[in-house]
Design a protein around this nucleic acid. Structure first.
Lengths: 189, 189
DNA sequence: TTCCCATACTCAAGAATCTGACTAATCATA
DNA sequence: TATGATTAGTCAGATTCTTGAGTATGGGAA
């Protein structure tokens, strides 16, 4: 039941429809979790049945109707309970890393291409996150915002996301260079 | 079918039993994937049935018998095919981040404790990885090893793991400090 | 000498996640 | 004026991952 708390945490910032939530979790603006739309709709249904979120129907003229959800008091209490419990460490699980692990026993060409591609994706995401940080803190500087802002949770997770994407980019670029150099130069072990 | 290729990649460095593999994937020495013993035994059985790995029985006196596995030519070809295909970007999925996302709507105390704890774990793992790097490159320096070493895959994924753990540690320490400062100082938004 | 830990594995059941297809309307673009 | 993208969801099925229990032996510590 991990997605459950991720959804509750995401809904703390206001009312969202399943569709909006799905975008945040799919594109990865929500830097603390990832999930597909189908999962989110199902989870929202369960959460509503448990009374942890409440939804209201919004009738729209030009678009299909939607349901906006918010966290109830019971939902906040559930989050509180969750936060007090212990968390297991998170693990890396990445196809690209598996390929790099095997890289000197297979053709390095496609792996290098994918490292370049991943570096580009990480750079783009880092930029998005950088802008999001500026938007979240408004006109204040970071230290002031973190010391006195009223809602810093999303900012803090965003900082983690930015660090992660930067690291990813640097690593990808460096490894791609190392592999290119090995192809260019003769191997004398 | 992602674990499949992770197991194949892990077995490239020699022969391992399910038990040894399980330790590497559980403790996280294998920095490119994580899995529980049950999964690994099941996966090895499947891989053997597909002819991608081959095992041999090793009879032991003082310990239960074990089966050591290695990758077959077909297994290497499968890895090759996997590496040539496209990889989806990896996403963060972490309970602790969910808690931080919610931190200013719930009691921050337990979250701070868990950040401290996670920082310690990350620091310890970073140290283990640092030592592993030294062991992997032997008496060479890094640049020389990466340019001319014969088996650099594990070293490269280890570098990623080290970067990740360092980032994790820095972020956890910083966030814990921010949250402590907010508890100590009055909130004037 | 009793108890726990490490080695080495197996089985079953359940929860979580992913893949892929479907409905149905409006809006922008070529 | 087709075509595709966007909004807003639903359903079924497969795969993957996690939880929990169980088997069996030997070694070391209390």
């Amino acid at each position: 039941m991990a997605l459950k708390h991720a959804v509750l945490a995401a809904l703390l910032d206001g009312e969202y429809s399943g569709y909006q939530l799905a975008k945040a979790f799919d594109i990865g603006v929500a830097n603390f979790w990832h999930a597909l739309p189908q999962q989110l709709y199902a989870e929202l249904t369960r959460l509503e049945a448990e009374g942890l979120v409440a939804g209201r129907q919004v009738v729209q003229e030009t678009r299909p109707n939607k349901r906006l959800f918010h966290v109830t008091d019971a939902g906040l209490a559930e989050l509180e309970r969750f936060a007090a419990g212990s968390a297991k460490p998170s693990f890396i699980r990445d196809d690209l890393l598996v390929k790099v692990q095997a890289v000197d026993r297979i053709d390095a060409g496609p792996v290098i291409e994918q490292l370049d591609e991943r570096a580009r994706i990480a750079a783009a995401k880092a930029e998005v996150l950088g802008k999001l940080l500026v938007r979240l803190r408004g006109d204040r500087d970071e230290a002031d915002f973190l010391a006195h802002g009223t809602r810093i949770g999303p900012y803090l997770t965003c900082l983690r996301g930015l660090g992660f994407e930067r690291e990813t980019r640097e690593w990808c670029e460096r490894i791609a260079d190392v592999l290119r150099a090995r192809i260019a130069a003769p191997q004398r072990p």
